[in-house]
Computed example of a mutant assay.
Amino acid sequence: MKKELLHTNSQKVIGMILGIILVIVFIGCSFVYGYTKVNWGMVIDSFRQFDGSNAHIIIQESRVPRAFIGAAVGASLAVAGALMQGITRNPLASPSIFGINAGAGFFIVVAVTFFSVSSIHQFAWIAFFGAMVTALIVYFLGTLGRDGLTPVKLTLAGAAMAAMFASLTQGMLSLNEKALDEVLFWLTGSVEGRKLEILTTMLPYLVVGWIGALFLTRQMNILAMGEDVAVGLGQKTAIVKISAAIVIVLLAGSAVAIAGPVGFIGIVIPHIARGLVGIDYRWVIPYSALLGAMLLLIADIGARYVIMPKEVPVGVMTALIGTPFFIYIARRGLNKL
C-alpha cells in the first residue's frame, strides 16, 4: 500500500476536524436539497418556530431523520468493513461478503412470506436477528477443522452463506409476488421513509459497536502484524477476532436493520481511510466513520436528482460509486492491510 497522505499526527487531527465539519455540512445539505424546494432559512425556522407548513413538515418528518440515519448507517458500515478487512486480511471483505446482508434479507422475506409481517419496525428487529444468526453460523463454519478459525475459512464461510441466503431469498420472492412488493424497497437499500424511531431503537447497539471498535484499535494493530507475531507478543488472537466479530454484528446488523443492504461502503471507505492515514487502526476507525457518513450522505442527496421527481434507492447510488473502486481493488488483488 502506498504511503499515507497525512503523515503527522497533527495533520491527521486537522483532517479529522475537517471531516467532522464536512459531515455537519452534508447533513445540512440533506436537510435542504431535494424535490421540494427548501432554503437554509426554512430549515432554521423549522427548528426554532415550527409552523406546520408543508416545507417544515418535510424537513422535520422526512429530511432530518434520513440525514441522521444516513450518517449513522454510513459510519457503521464503514467501520464494520474496516474491522472485517483487518481480521480476515481480505481487501474485499465487507458485510456483504460476511453474509450479514444476505442473512438479514432472508429472514425479512421469511417473515413476510410466512408470518405476514409488514411493519418497518418489525423489519428492523428481524433483520438484526438475521444478521446475528448468520454471523454465528459463519463463525461456527470458520472454526471447523484442525487449524481452527482462520481468515481464509472465515471468508469462504461468509461467501458461502451469502450465496445460499441470496438464492433462497430469490426463490421465495419468485413464488410470492406479495412479499416481493413489500420488501423490494428494503432489499435495495434506502434511507428514504425511515423515521427517527428506527434509529433510536438501534442506537444503543450502534453506540456500543462504535465504542467497541475504538477499544479494539490497539489489538487490531498488533493483529495486523501477522498471526504468529501477535501470538508471540502475547495476544489472544481468538478473543480479539471474536470481539471484532461481535462489534461487526452490532454495527453492520443494526445498519442493515435500519436501511437494508447498502453495499460497497464497507469495501470502499476503509481503503480510502488507509490511503489517508496509513494502517494504524487508531486513525483508520475514526476516519472510516467520518468518510462512510459522508459517502452515504452524498449518495442519498444525489439519489434525489437522478430521476426526479422519483428517487433512486441509495443502495443503487453507492453501487454506482463503489463498483469502479471494487474492480480496481479486485485487480490489485494482494493489497497489504
Rank of each mutant, 00 (worst) to 15 (best):
K3P: 05
K3M: 10
E4N: 09
K12C: 07
G15I: 02
I17Y: 08
I17M: 13
L18R: 09
I20W: 10
I24D: 05
V25T: 14
V25F: 11
F26W: 05
F26T: 04
V32A: 15
V32F: 13
W40A: 10
W40V: 11
W40Y: 14
S46G: 02
S46E: 06
F50E: 15
S53R: 05
I59T: 02
Q60K: 11
E61G: 04
P65I: 03
F68L: 13
F68E: 03
I69Y: 01
V73A: 04
A75H: 00
G81V: 02
A82T: 04
M84V: 14
A93I: 06
V110M: 11
F115N: 11
S116A: 14
V117P: 02
H121E: 15
W125M: 13
A127N: 00
A127G: 07
T143M: 08
T143P: 00
R146A: 10
L149D: 04
A157H: 03
G158V: 02
G158R: 05
A160P: 03
A162S: 14
F165S: 09
L168G: 15
Q170M: 15
Q170I: 15
N176A: 09
D181Y: 07
V183N: 01
T188S: 14
V191G: 01
L196W: 02
T201L: 09
Y205G: 03
A213K: 03
L214C: 13
M220V: 10
M220Y: 02
N221K: 01
M225V: 15
G226L: 04
A230N: 12
V231W: 02
V231L: 09
I239M: 12
V240R: 09
A245M: 15
I246R: 00
I246E: 00
L251R: 01
G253S: 12
A257Y: 06
I258M: 14
I267W: 00
P270K: 03
L276Y: 09
Y281F: 11
P286R: 07
L290H: 03
G292E: 14
M294K: 00
L295T: 10
L296F: 07
L296I: 08
I298W: 00
V312H: 02
T318W: 09
T323A: 13
A330C: 12
N335E: 15
K336P: 15
